[in-house]
């Protein structure tokens, strides 16, 4: 059991470090040119048709008052309901929604189990209702997840629209997620104390004396989840949180470079970089910066 506890801590560490490292890498990337794509939901009163402040004459003289509530609501619909897939790829939505929503429910199960574990540690017994809710959520999550993984696997392997682009990782990811759901489901069927076992296991993570023995299938389930934790940060599945940046830092990022604003200093620094493109019309010589090059015409030297 101790080994599983050690592996759990290691897997959680890899997950957190991997996610943090990816976020830091994204945040450290330089400011880019404006590349927003309308509709931008924070455009108050205009988002429903895709309008922007640029529709106003002398727009730079007018106060901009972004609508962050609509922006948040748009994001929630996208994350929780996969609105984009529903609108643009309906045949895929059923499987994709089941798979994704099951993951959200499992995060909920984990959060409740952590609460239960904390209660165990503090000596106040978790109320039966907590265990009941954990079990209901887990039943739905595992069943939905299994269904989603199967539908998606079928789509990935047989749907002509997808199979041309299917790589080994798509198949592996779905099998792994399906296996997590399957082992979870079997654990619940075979162990009526599933919720108690789960909270007990989590409590044991911080107090070795509280070490809790899992059933064999419980071991398998936890091991699969740990494998997912270690694997996740190195895959395209990180779109789960990178989506925040693709939306907020690119698609909806419309900050104008107005006098007195924060952008020009960054732009000056970036334009001071030495360009090394090799095409003759660029005329880079290993010393010229962007600022040096823009004064030229792009004619190739004889």
């Amino acid at each position: 059991m101790t080994a599983l506890y050690v592996l759990t801590w290691l897997a959680v560490s890899v997950l957190l470090l991997g996610v943090i490292a990816r976020i830091i890498r994204i945040l450290r990337m330089p400011l880019h040119l404006r590349w927003e794509l309308y509709p931008v939901p924070h455009e108050r009163g205009r988002a429903h048709y895709g309008g922007s402040r640029l529709e106003d004459v002398n727009w730079w003289t007018k106060q901009h008052n972004p609508d962050h509530v609509t922006e948040l609501w748009t994001m929630l619909k996208e994350i929780l309901l996969l609105k984009g897939v529903w609108e643009h790829n309906r045949p895929l939505w059923w499987g994709s929604f089941a798979l994704h929503f099951a993951l959200y429910l499992l995060i909920g199960v984990l959060a409740l189990a952590v609460i239960g574990g904390i209660m165990v540690l503090t000596g106040s017994p978790a109320p039966p209702v907590l265990f009941a809710v954990i079990k209901i959520l887990a039943w739905v999550a595992y069943s939905l997840g299994m269904l989603g993984a199967l539908i998606m696997l079928w789509k990935r392997l047989l749907d002509p629209k997808l199979k041309l682009f299917t790589t080994g990782s798509h198949v592996f990811n779905l099998i792994l997620l399906g296996a997590i759901d399957l082992t979870g489901l079997i654990w619940m069927i075979r162990d009526s104390e599933y919720a108690v076992s789960l909270t007990g296991f989590l409590a044991g993570l911080v107090t070795p004396t509280q070490s809790y023995d899992l059933s064999t299938v419980g071991y398998w389930h936890v091991s699969m989840v740990l494998l997912f934790f270690v694997y996740f940060p190195f895959t395209h599945m990180t779109h789960a949180f990178v989506k925040y940046f693709t939306y907020h830092s690119i698609r909806w990022e419309d900050t104008p470079n107005l006098p007195g604003g924060r952008l020009q200093a960054q732009i000056n620094r970036l334009e001071g970089q030495v360009v090394t493109w090799a095409a003759p019309h660029i005329n880079a010589d290993g010393r010229k910066t962007w600022v040096d090059l823009v004064g030229e015409t792009g004619e190739e030297k004889p």
Binding site: V85, N89, L92, L162, F165, T166, H236, H239
Partner: peptide, 9 residues
Amino acid sequence: EHCARCQSC
């Protein structure tokens, strides 16, 4: 780095 190859586009 983050395309799911879902072909929704």
